[in-house]
Design a protein around this nucleic acid. Structure first.
Length: 352
DNA sequence: AATGCGGGGGA
DNA sequence: TCCCCAGCATT
């Protein structure tokens, strides 16, 4: 007998988990009720999964509805203007997702308009990593695989009292839980684990008495549910400073397009200085400027930004920089959050 | 394996 | 305030 068939026997987690899910599934706009025989539209699943990468369910609800209404099919999205999609993504963060969203839509549309069904093929599309490829395969196509997100990783870490962190934890959880995936409800199994992680097996104060898997949970048995998964200490975020300028003329304001790589790549922005540790107030040209009394503060992933805001209103639009985009003062919806904050301040400065 | 990449919701 | 979220691409 070959020794290869070392696949661990299922522990029987699916039955209690799915029974719990059938009664407690969250009502989410991109989800069909548990046990629904018809699989959902792969386009909707994919759109939701990309939007939910490192983004909370609550933050994704409204943008998801907006995107779906505006671009109801992958063909519609593939035909959209880049700037329009980037503007619609403004405020959601991680803007590489929006660029990859478009690249992926165009790839799929060019290939006939149907998403590939296999996890391996999905994995090659722009913006689909291990998680999203598995999620689309399981949720949209019923493939017997398991997407391991932060929820599933936490549930698995506690269930098996796993010590590893980061990518090693994701692998360990996948290896342990994948054999538990039932062939007929792979998508529900994944979503059940996610809901369990979000609602019961929470990062803080897990509600173990309500957990259908509590009797099988090793961390719970140790009285250490909240200690898993191990938390990696975070580094302190440095502060950077800079200035931005609200330059208004004839009801329009000067914007610029940020470079295609790096932070806020390709997004609209207010013109201004670069950002560094120590950056004094600076202006692009002399004039009757007003400085905001308080700077705008904004936290990014790895640094905090303190932005001084200067505003001026002129009779004639000045050409003080390359590539200025003169935009209606009242339609700045396409700005990332940091510039939306600064614009609100600048508009007031130029009003007086 | 480590790092860069946003923003917000909830405690 | 702090923590952490339906991760991915790049190095």
């Amino acid at each position: 007998m070959p020794v290869e068939s070392e696949a661990p026997a299922p522990l029987g987690l699916a039955a209690p988990l799915l029974a719990w899910y059938d009664r407690n599934a969250r009502d989410l706009p991109w989800r069909l009720p548990p046990g629904t025989p018809a699989v959902p539209d792969p386009y909707r699943v994919w759109l939701a999964e990309v939007m939910l990468q490192q983004t909370t369910v609550e933050a994704a609800r409204e943008p998801y509805a907006r995107f779906l209404a505006r671009w109801p099919t992958v063909a519609a999205l593939a035909a959209a203007d880049d700037a329009e999609v980037m503007a619609a993504w403004a405020g959601l963060g991680y803007y590489a997702r929006a660029r990859n969203l478009l690249r992926c839509a165009r790839t799929v549309a060019a290939a006939g308009g149907a998403f590939p069904r296999s996890e391996g093929e999905l994995r090659r599309l722009p913006g689909l990593g291990p998680y999203t490829a598995a999620a689309v395969a399981a949720l949209a196509f019923g493939a017997r695989t398991l997407p391991v997100d932060a929820n599933v990783a936490r549930v698995g870490a506690r269930l098996f009292a796993l010590q590893p962190e980061g990518p090693a934890l994701l692998r360990a959880v996948g290896e342990r839980l994948r054999p538990e995936v039932p062939a007929d409800r792979a998508g529900d199994f994944a979503q059940a684990l996610m809901d369990l992680g979000a609602v019961v097996c929470r990062p803080r104060a897990p509600d173990c008495p309500r957990c259908p898997l509590a009797a099988r949970c090793h961390a719970r048995a140790l009285g250490l549910a909240e200690a898993f998964p191990r938390r990696t200490p975070r580094r302190a975020r440095p502060t950077r400073r800079g200035s931005v300028w609200w330059v208004e003329a004839d009801g329009r304001v000067a914007l610029v397009r940020r470079p295609p790589r790096g932070l806020l790549a390709g997004m609209l922005a207010l013109p201004g200085t670069g950002w560094s540790a120590e950056q004094p107030r600076a202006l692009p040209f002399p004039g009757d400027w007003r400085w905001a009394a308080e700077p705008v503060r904004h936290g990014f992933t790895h640094f905090d930004l303190v932005l001084e805001v200067a505003g001026i209103r002129l009779a004639v639009p000045p050409a003080f920089a390359e590539g200025l985009i003169w935009t209606s003062r009242d339609s700045l919806a396409g700005l990332p959050t940091v510039f939306r904050k600064a614009a609100a301040v600048g508009r007031e400065l130029a009003r007086a």
